[in-house]
Every structure is written in structure tokens, then in C-alpha cells.
Amino acid sequence: MYNFEFEKPGSIADAVAALGSEDAQALGGGQTLIPTLKQRLAAPSKLVSLTGIAEMQGVCMDDDGRMCIGAVTSHEDVAAQGASYAALADLAGNIGDPAVRARGTIGGSLANNDPSACYPAGALASGATIVTNSREIAADDYFQGMFTTALEEGEIITDVKFPVPEAANYQKFEQPASRFALVGVFVAKFADGVRVAVTGASEEGVHRWAAAEEALSANFSADAVPDAPDADGMIADLHGTSAYRAHLVAVLTRRAVAACG
């Protein structure tokens, strides 16, 4: 690693101020950022740890019935405290391994927007709102392709608000080495329609599967899930061809719908 300064502010305001210095970077649980730094693939001048900010911790329900998760809430805590949105709690409880879940944070995951990460699928399928120090961003506007988001320089996620669907389920097919999602599908059924978000599969990163949403909104059953989407634009790597990933998208969507009961 290159050396950097370390700062651990106690408030959002102090964190925003600390991030004002050139090449400063926010640090959540560090479960992705620290391995990246070890490879010397980034050289921040300063890391600003957000884990000491009490107001960014914890899970609660807001007046609109949304589950609000502080940005530095660990995956473990979401799994334990997220009973109001069980599908999301289950998603959190299956990210990485127990030690990673004890440190990794929802804000870190969403800010990084790894194309194989689980949370982006949960946020996008849920139509979540990503709250930052300066604004609120709808999930549909937030995810902008692999490792790319709507966040501006120095902007930090403070919490994430999840509308709770009538039924929802996340199915992850693990890449055998990293245990990230080779493909993951999150299905969320709301009164006004079904949202289906897919992670791991596309070169565009997390995305909604419109054909499935349309079909499932009309008939919410596994049989209604369309045939596999077009393999064009799907990721092809050591672990699977694009055709295989496209196939898994349909399989996992069916399983998710079936699991919704």
C-alpha cells in the first residue's frame, strides 16, 4: 500500500469536511477498498473512516414504512436487524463470509457498485432511495454501470431507504472462487408491479430485466418468467460464458419468484 493519512470523524459534517482535501477517499468497512489498496491500484492521500459516525449506524423503519439502513451498518447487523424486510436481511446475511459481514457496510457496497455485488440488486429491485449528505437519489438513477454511480466527488452516502415489497426474494449463484454473485437476481413484488434486478451478469453492471418485470407484473408465477435474456452484453470470463449467465438469469428469476410463495 501507498501511505495515506487516516482520519475518523464523529459526524457527517466533519466527514464531508475531511473529504474536501485533495485525493481524500471515504472508507467504510474496507472489505473491497483495502484489498484494492494492497494491490497499489489506488493512492488516496487520506482515508476518512465513516465507521465512527453514530448517525450513520443502524436499521429502523420510517414513517412511510420504509426500512432505513445507515450507510455504515454492517452486513451482519442488517442480517440481524432487518426482519422487517426479510429478503434484504437474507441478502445481507449471505454476502461474503462472517468476518467480511462483520466489517463490510451497505454504503461501501453501494458506493463501489461492483458488478457482482449483492446490494446493488437489492437496492435497484426495491426501488430504494440512496440518501447522501447533500441529496436523495433514486436507485434507478444511481447505478450507472460497472463501478460507476451518480455520486459526486466528496459526496457520501449517509443512509438508504428501502420500500418494503409485498413479497421479495434474492437468489445468488456464487462464483466458486470469490463467492461473489456469478449471477444474482432480486425479485420484489409491489402493489403497483414487480421489479427484477440482476447483478453479476451484465457488462453494464446491475440492471433491471424489463421483460421479466412486465410478465411478472401481469402474472406473478415462476411459469411466467420469460426465456433467458439475450446473451449479448453479458459478462464472459473464466467462470462462465455469456450464454451461461443469460441462462442463469432466467433460472434464478424463476427460483426467486417461486421462493416468494
Partner: peptide, 21 residues
Amino acid sequence: GACVVHVNGKAIKSCTMLAME
């Protein structure tokens, strides 16, 4: 996971946590 220790009662990977944290 060879580096797992407990910090404030939780098992974490000490190679992926800064000492200052």
C-alpha cells in the same frame, strides 16, 4: 481467514482492517 481475530467481540479479518481503526 488465517488472520481472523476478534475486535470488540466480532471475528474480523485483521489483514483487511487498518490498525488505526
